[in-house]
Computed example of a mutant assay.
Amino acid sequence: MASQPVPPSWKDLGKAASDLLGKDLPINGSTLEVKTRTPNGVTFRVLGLRDNKSQAINGDLEAKWEDRKNGVTLTQAWSTSNVLRNHVELENHIAKGLKLELVTTLIPDKQTKNALFASTYKQPGLHTRQHLDLFKGPTFTADAVLGRDGFLAGAEASYDVRDGKLSRYNLAAGYHAPEYAVTVHGLGNLSTYSASYYHRVNADIEASARATYDSKAPSSNVNLEVGTKTYLDNAAFVKAKINNAGVLCLGYTQALRPGVKASFGLALDTVKLSDSQAGANAHKLGAAVTFEA
């Protein structure tokens, strides 16, 4: 019997559908991202974002050092909101397929700090993650995904150590094939349900849909969004999605040259197209430019 592949992690269940419906549609502002890599393995990343709604400009500066031979990665980041973050990763040190992580954050002016210890274990047919939030709770969270012949089943749960009770639990199931994927989630202690579908129709066209039902919402309606992605050539593609509220999103991404990519996004509230008073609250426009060297 052929060996089973390593299934995706809990957070990546339904990722193909989520990426098609969410990525490369910069409708909430303007983003500039610059990535550079030095010969000794240090990667620098600068990210700037101007939010259309608040007009605020935020930025992040990140440096990442990676020693792939020894499985060690160190990431340090500093944001314009004065948040300092350190992330240490050790992979395949104690056992093959095991990764240990320590993430710390500090806000100096507020003296707010946090520390998260995490582990990930991957083997054919199994992908598990655990993390302990030392200052919030403390809270222990664990998830696991089992996979066999394309069928996936996953669960996530959080346990509040101080209160001694289960604070959150979620379930998921799906089927992943090379050309399509179906995923069903039960989130928020099984109060919210979502089902997503992704299909690579051919080499140039992809399609996806997602339905979400929140049993605690005032109006128990099912929210639906449908999207598609079409490759114009090997350097450009367009995206379109629409939801049941009548919001239409359009996106265009062009690779200008190796390492340089530009994306443009437009969101139109089709219900308010004739409303001259709707203005920017109904329609959104944004752009994102990425440099990588």
Rank of each mutant, 00 (worst) to 15 (best):
A142Q: 14
A172Y: 07
S81Y: 03
D19G: 10
P7R: 01
V271A: 14
H131R: 04
G164D: 02
A181F: 03
Q55E: 02
R68H: 12
R37M: 08
T38C: 09
T75R: 11
N86W: 10
S215R: 14
S263Y: 00
V222M: 14
A56E: 04
V184L: 15
V145I: 06
A115V: 11
K122V: 11
Q130H: 12
Y197R: 11
P178H: 14
N221F: 11
Q277F: 08
T128C: 14
N202F: 08
V238F: 09
A157F: 13
T75K: 13
D51A: 03
H283E: 00
K99V: 10
K229F: 01
G246N: 07
A95G: 07
K229W: 00
Y193S: 08
A115R: 08
F135E: 15
D269I: 05
R85L: 11
T230S: 11
Y252D: 07
D143Q: 03
L187K: 15
L187Q: 15
A282Y: 12
R200V: 03
A115T: 15
R50Y: 06
V201M: 10
G22L: 00
I94Y: 09
S194C: 10
A280P: 03
R148K: 14
R68Q: 14
I107G: 03
D12G: 07
V271P: 01
T31F: 05
T253E: 15
A262D: 02
Y231A: 15
A17G: 02
A118F: 03
P218S: 03
A288S: 15
G174N: 06
Q4R: 08
G71W: 06
A173F: 13
G59H: 02
L20S: 02
L171Y: 14
V34P: 03
S196G: 13
R168Q: 12
A280G: 06
L266N: 06
S194E: 11
T38P: 10
P178M: 14
T192Q: 15
G48V: 01
S196V: 05
A293N: 11
E89W: 04
A236W: 05
D160K: 09
L250F: 09
D204P: 01
I57Q: 09
G227Y: 07
F135S: 12
K241N: 02
V42T: 09
L171D: 07
I242A: 04
D24L: 00
H87A: 06
F117G: 10
V161D: 05
P5M: 00
